[in-house]
Structure formats: structure tokens, C-alpha cells
Design a protein around this nucleic acid. Sequence first.
DNA 1: GATGAATGAGCCTTCATTCAT
DNA 2: TATGAATGAAGGCTCATTCAT
Lengths: 205, 205, 205, 205
Amino acid sequence: MAKRVKGVTERILECAKQEFLEKGFKDASLRDIAKKAGSSKGAIYVRFSDKENLFAALVNPSFEGIKNLLISARQEFLELPDNIKMEKMKSFSDDKVSLMIEYIYDNYDAFNLLTKCASGTEYENFIHELVEIDIEYNHKLFEDMYKDMPTSKRFTPELLHIVSSAFFSGVFEIVVHNMSKEDADHYIKMLRRFFEGGWNTMLKR
Amino acid sequence: MAKRVKGVTERILECAKQEFLEKGFKDASLRDIAKKAGSSKGAIYVRFSDKENLFAALVNPSFEGIKNLLISARQEFLELPDNIKMEKMKSFSDDKVSLMIEYIYDNYDAFNLLTKCASGTEYENFIHELVEIDIEYNHKLFEDMYKDMPTSKRFTPELLHIVSSAFFSGVFEIVVHNMSKEDADHYIKMLRRFFEGGWNTMLKR
Amino acid sequence: MAKRVKGVTERILECAKQEFLEKGFKDASLRDIAKKAGSSKGAIYVRFSDKENLFAALVNPSFEGIKNLLISARQEFLELPDNIKMEKMKSFSDDKVSLMIEYIYDNYDAFNLLTKCASGTEYENFIHELVEIDIEYNHKLFEDMYKDMPTSKRFTPELLHIVSSAFFSGVFEIVVHNMSKEDADHYIKMLRRFFEGGWNTMLKR
Amino acid sequence: MAKRVKGVTERILECAKQEFLEKGFKDASLRDIAKKAGSSKGAIYVRFSDKENLFAALVNPSFEGIKNLLISARQEFLELPDNIKMEKMKSFSDDKVSLMIEYIYDNYDAFNLLTKCASGTEYENFIHELVEIDIEYNHKLFEDMYKDMPTSKRFTPELLHIVSSAFFSGVFEIVVHNMSKEDADHYIKMLRRFFEGGWNTMLKR
DNA sequence: GATGAATGAGCCTTCATTCAT
DNA sequence: TATGAATGAAGGCTCATTCAT
């Protein structure tokens, strides 16, 4: 039985990554990827059934990874005893955000692809999915934490959406602008302080 | 004097708008636009010298418009007497942001195109240009207002960039999500309150 | 009654000349010619009914001119009394060739067009027409001069054609290679000496 | 291993040849060639990367062939002992020219393309390359043979160019005029005699 | 499994020419 | 007469995908 030549998949992925980074999804050419990889178009189709799928192979693990990171962070927080939620909030999310930044830098190429080269793919608006997760948990959180308060009109899902969206857009600026890890750490800290202030303002009223 | 047949330009623009909205810049077909417009490819080329130009015709006036709105708002504020800047800040920018939202809804299609369909054009990152204008003025503002304070490391251009970027991304979410004008007004108000809180937090420290 | 604006024809011709020289007939664009001339495509069509005709307008007078020069030179020689033909041959054709060279330099642009830019027009092989005139006269000449000799198989029209063709190709090398008039005079002299030698050789046998 | 369907290349080349012969390079249509060949545009691009290349495939071997024929003939002569050069000159080049004519007729289509249909390709002035080879060798030859004679001003590269050019133009007239091989043999003989006379004249002075 | 030839729709653009104004 | 808008055929070329070998 014919076996897949070892290393071909790796080479294809590597070259595809370069091609997508260079030209974006739409303008990338499978022909060129195969050529650069010293392989053939067929070899690509055997492994990844089409162009979109090839892109997904490069990007999806990291996408799932960051989603899971976000989910487990939020879930974990949700499951804290109510009485220590407030107290832990700051330090807790500091840690979690740091984990995410770490994760982004550990999978930098993938997030570069997601951020700059995904136009035309299902990942085009990948930030939205993070946002949706985020607001879902925010929703749960507020239900939990403030169930006694009069639900102010202000805490609609749409607001949560917008703020989350702004936050994650802010986060991924570190990729868009190719910041060094150190710069990123610094600015994310500031970004978080900024949003913290925002949240405090919102909550106080 | 050969005259352009009346209404053709309008029909081309209208159909181009639809096509671009539907398929995005890259996948839009001039053939199809001409066909839908009941006209010919040549008729497009007489008016707009190429595909990019046709897109620009749909989008550039609104892009310039919002830039000018931003510039004049920021400039006007900058020229207020220092002693009333703080006092007016809130109400002043409420008004100005309202104007921008108004403008966006008055040119909704254009901003839809800019926001969702511009990949592959020079407008791909149109938000960045707004951000750059914004941070330029923030810079001037801080120079003016806080020239006596020790320039904290926090107010680097990069921070300004990130926050501005988050803000404008937030603003254009109203387009990305096809919010009604009323919803938009409401949520922009909240977004602004949120960012206001953020700024206050940053400034206080 | 509407009159042709004065100078338009001249400007069109001048710009057409430049365009044809630059790009050759096929690649020349009437659009561009009209634009450069500050005029319109229609204005071209009124004066010259199509592209080919416009080219002809630039080229035909000189083409006719050189044909006539050739014809009258050959005719004149033919009409010399037989007994002085041989004697005058050399000096006579020296003069005539000089006239042709003169004419070429007086109409240099036209011959440049004919030589390098006429592919795709009826003038593509303009040298052939000169050759045909030439061999027609050679034929008459030989009939006259050598009617008593056994018509050697060698003096077929085809030979005359080939030699004439080689000669005129040689002549127009001065245009192909943008020789200065002085250089041209010198080398045409040599070319003629060369061909003279050739003819003598042929005639002697 | 994907294999090219047998005969497709041949059919494409054959149909391309016909199309180019009929319409010339510029006006030939790859679409039509593919259609006539019962194949697809893509099939052409797999084999020949573009239009120019397709033309070259038809023409280049013969072009290289005749250049090599010329080069080796001239080189061989150059390497003859000086004392028998003069003696052999006539018979020697008779043979070599015959070889070239033979070669031209063995590759008739290619030379037809080169002669009549190459406008717009790099072969447009293919005769010039032959001429350049020729004059290079003439130069060497004269340096060798006449190094004791006063270098007359007459033997400038430009003269050599003109005469060579005239000669080769003469030679390819057999293609331009679709002469039969027999006619060609006969007339080339005469052409050569003619040029021989020319050279003798030049050399004697 | 691997290859890459084959496909043919589709791309943007240019053009000479026609003709209503 | 002059204009230049309108036409629509045609151009070369690229592409993702299919499939015979």
C-alpha cells in the first residue's frame, strides 16, 4: 500500500503558510504552494480537500486553542464562589489574559494568518467568535452577580458585544502591528487598565 | 459634444454597489456589473478607469467626509481655551460623535463597503487612517493639556493607537452588525461612556 | 457651416507619427493619438477614414515620391541613345541614387515608418514595390541592350528580383540603423561600388 | 505520474504554426489555436508558458540551427591554412551555402514564420543576428588575410554590415517568395556570383 | 498515494469603430 | 463638423479542481 511520503505534509503546510502570509487567502495560488513545497497539487488535495481546508489546517488549531483558553478562563471564574469573585477579578483576569498573550505568541504565524490573511475564508471575522464567547459569559456573570440589581438597560448583549469587540480588536493589534512580546505585554497591561476603568464606570452607575 | 447617456452612471454605481456588497471587491465582476446595469464594460471604463476606481467612486466621498468630520471636531476642540476644555469635553464630544454616527447612517452603503467589502483595495484598512488622525490630535492635546505633568510612560503613541483603534473598531461595529440607527445611538453612547471611564482611569493614575 | 478647426489635421498627423514610430502600427492606439493631439477620435475619422488610412496619410506621399523618383530615373536612362548608355551608366546612376538618398533624408520620418513600423499595413513590404519597378526596367533595359545576345538563362526576372531586393534592403539599412546623412552617403557609395562589381561580373560572363 | 496525452503537443504545434502563418504573431489567437487543436488554452500553457514561448518553440530550433551552420562554416574557413584560403574560397563557400539552403528547405515552415510572421517577437529581426555573426567572422578574416595591407577606410564594420545584410536579405527572398528548391538553388548560385563580383571589386581597389 | 495534464470559466482590460448629440 | 460615449468582441492569462495514469 502506498504510503504518504513523510515530511510532505509538513512541507506543504510550511509553504502554504508562507504563501498565505504573503498574498492572503484569495491571491494565494495552490500551484505555487505545491511548487515551493516540491510537491504536487494532487498531494495537497489528498491531505486537505481544498484551498479553504488547507488554510483551516494552518489556523484552526490555534483558533480552537484560543477559544478554549477563553472558555476555560471564563468558566473557571464563573465557578468561583460568588463572594470572592469581586476580590479575585483583577488578579484572576490578569493571569488569564497573560496566558492568552502567551498563547498568541506561541502560535504567532497562525494569528498572523487569522488577523491579516483570512479574508475570503470562514475565519474572516474570527474575532467575532471570541467576542460571542465572551459576551455569553459576561451575560451569565451578570445574571449571577447582579441578579438582585435592577437590570439596567445598559447591559444589553449589544453593549457587551461592542465592548468585547473593542477589547479583542485591541488585543490583536499586537499582531497586526508586529509588536515584540515585551511591547505587547506592556501595552496589553495598559489596554486592560483602560478597559477596567471602563467597566468600573459602567458598573458604578 | 458627445454626452453621456443620462442615468447610466447612476445605474452602474448602483449595480456596482450591490455587486461589491454581495461578493466583496475581489470577487466582484465588472462583466456582471455591466450586465446588471444594462450597459457595457466599456461604459464603465469611460467613467471609472478601472475596478479599483469604480470602488473608490462609491466609497471615497464618504471616507473623506468622515475624515474631515473627525479632523474638524478634533481641531475645534483643540482650539478651545484651555480652561474650558475639561468642562466641555464630555458634551462637546457627545455632539461630535453624534455627528459622525449621523454621517455614517447618511452614507450607510459606503460604510458597509468600507467595512466589509474593501479587502484588496486601498481602503482595506480605512479605520487605521481614522486612528492615525485621532492619535495625532490626542498627541497634540496631551502636549497642550498636560505639559506640566511628568510625561508618564503610559501615554506612548502605541497606547494611543491601541485605544483609538479599539474605539473606532467599536464604532464601526454598528455597521458590521447592521444596527438600526436607534440601537446605534444608544450603544455608541454606552461605548463612549465606557471609553470615558477608561480614559479617566488612565489619566487619574 | 462648420469648418475644420485649423491645425487639427496637422496635430493629428504629428501625434500619429509619434505614436506609430513608438509602438508600430498594430500597437498604436487611435485613442492615444487623439488624446495627444488634444482632439477626438471622431476628428480622426472625419479626416482619415480609418487607422490604416491615417498611417497611409503619413507615409504614402513619400512612398509615391520615391517610386516616382525611381521610375523617372530609370525611364530617363532607358531613353538615352543606346550608344551612350554604357558610358553614362556609372555617373548617371550615381546622380540618381544621390537624389534618392536626399529624398529619404528629406522625408526621414516617413521612411522610418515604412521601414520599421508598417507591419500590419499594406506598406509592410514597401521595398518589394520598389524592387518590382526596378526589375521591370532592368528587364526592358536588357531587352534593349542585349537583344542580339543569346538570352542567357541567368537573367531571369527572379535573379533581377533578388539582386534588386538585396540592393534596396541595403539602401534602407541607412534608415534602419539611423545613420547620419554623411555616413549614409559614404556607405551608399560603397554599397553601389559593391553592386556595380556584382553586375559587371554577371554581365561579363 | 500524470502523463501528457500523446499527440496533443504535436497538434498544438501544428495548429499554432498554421495560425501564426496565417495571421502573424500579433493577430494569432491562442483561443483559436487551442480550438483548432481540439484542446484547451490550459493545455498550451502547460507546455509553453506563453504565446511568445509557443512561437519560439516553432522557430527557435531552426534559428539556432542556421546560426550554428553559419558559425561552423565560417569557423572552418577561418581555420584553413592561409595559403589555400583564396584558392578554396569559392568552392568552399559554395558548399556551405548549399548546406544552408538545404537546411532552410528542411525547415521551411520555421523559416517562413521567421521571415514573415515574427513581427512582435524577439525574432523580429532574426536576419540581423546572422548578419552579426557574419560580420564578426569577416572582421577576423580580414584581420588575418590583409594584415599587411593598409587598412582601407572602406572595410569598416558598417560596410560589412550592409553587404552582409543585403546578402542574407537576398537569401531569404527564396522563402519570402516561396521559391521551389530548384529555383532557389539556381538563383542562390547567381546571387552568390553577384556578391562574389562585388567582393572582388571591393578587394581589388 | 502521487502526479501534473487538462479543463474552461473567468478575470480585467483594450480596441477600432459607430453614432447620437 | 466635432465630440466622446457606447459597444462588445477579443485579447492573454490564471485558477481551483478533476482525474487518468
